[in-house]
Nucleic acid binder design. Structure first.
Length: 281
DNA sequence: ATGGCAGAAGCATTCTGA
């Protein structure tokens, strides 16, 4: 089972590239971020034509997330809803469309576009930290329900200095500060594992290159797009790869897809459902 | 400190991203 995430930086500008990539890779589930379009203008038909179902949560110009999948999603939810931290003002998180979740074959897919945060100490930075705090509360609720979780998207955080092309220059700054990493770790709480790091321990693997300063040509990238799986799912991982090839396209997104291959199918589900308890297997 | 590039809105230029 192939599950991927890709910040496409405008679904409309990137449409043909995304369709090409799907045809080439054949993922079961593709989570998109920064679709940058209102729901009524989202190009659903091209995905239907190649046999995919589409769930969208968008807004004008900014943000926007979507789930493209072979199997139709069930239990689709958009935004934090009632799950957010009670001590947070949920209203300020309703306007920005950054989270969509759905269930597939017993797995809860959580697709997020974490705020960038601009710079340390800014209002946007505070928003980013609060947003991550809400996400932590959201996951606490999901964990209580016993869901198998696959949390993925653009996190706008490099988990360690290995995930930055020039840590000396960028460590401690935006996307690489202790505050952001603590906020991210509070979401993960050790219960969710960075799929990529199960297979690759070294530096030099990037999911985003700035459009400016020839960052891609000079391979000056960051690893800020992640797929986190709950421990039960981690044991079923066959691979996690960053497909950097679309960054070489004409008019590319500044991000590339990250994808896991999971040893998971309907057979697992039947088996689990018969047992009626996932965790005693 | 600023700008470098890209997309959306909308038609000149501003806002946002990371």
């Amino acid at each position: 089972m192939l599950i991927a995430t890709w910040n496409v930086n405008s679904i409309r500008t990137r449409l043909s590239q995304i369709i090409d990539w799907i045809n080439q890779v054949n993922p079961d589930i593709l989570c998109l971020q920064e679709t940058k379009v209102m729901d009524e203008s989202f190009p659903i038909e091209p995905f239907k034509k190649i046999g995919y179902s589409v769930e969208i949560y968008g807004q004008k110009s900014y943000n926007g997330v979507a789930i493209i999948s072979k199997e139709k999603a069930s239990n689709v939810k958009k935004g934090f809803g009632g799950y957010a931290n009670s001590d947070q003002n949920i209203e300020i998180f309703q306007d920005q469309k950054r989270l969509i979740t759905a269930d597939f074959n017993g797995i809860k897919i959580i697709n997020v576009y974490v705020p960038n945060g601009s710079s340390l100490g800014s209002t946007k930075f505070e928003y980013k930290i609060n947003w991550l705090s809400c996400l932590a509360s959201f996951l606490d609720e999901e964990e209580k329900k016993g869901n198998l979780i696959c949390l993925m998207g653009d996190f706008n955080v490099a988990p360690s200095s290995l995930d930055i092309h020039d840590p000396n220059k960028y460590e401690g700054g935006i996307m690489a500060s202790e505050i952001e990493r603590n906020a991210l770790n509070n979401v993960l709480k050790g219960r969710l594992i960075d799929s990529f790091r199960i297979f690759e321990k070294d530096t030099g693997h990037w999911s985003w290159w700035d459009y400016r300063n020839k960052a891609y040509e000079l391979n000056k990238g960051w690893r800020i797009d992640h797929i986190y799986t709950s421990k039960e799912l981690s044991s079923k991982l066959k691979s996690c790869v960053i497909d950097s090839s679309p960054r070489a396209n004409l008019q590319p997104s500044d991000h590339v897809p990250v994808m896991i291959d999971l040893n998971w199918n309907d057979k697992n589900i039947d088996f689990f459902e018969e047992e009626d308890n996932f965790f005693e297997i």
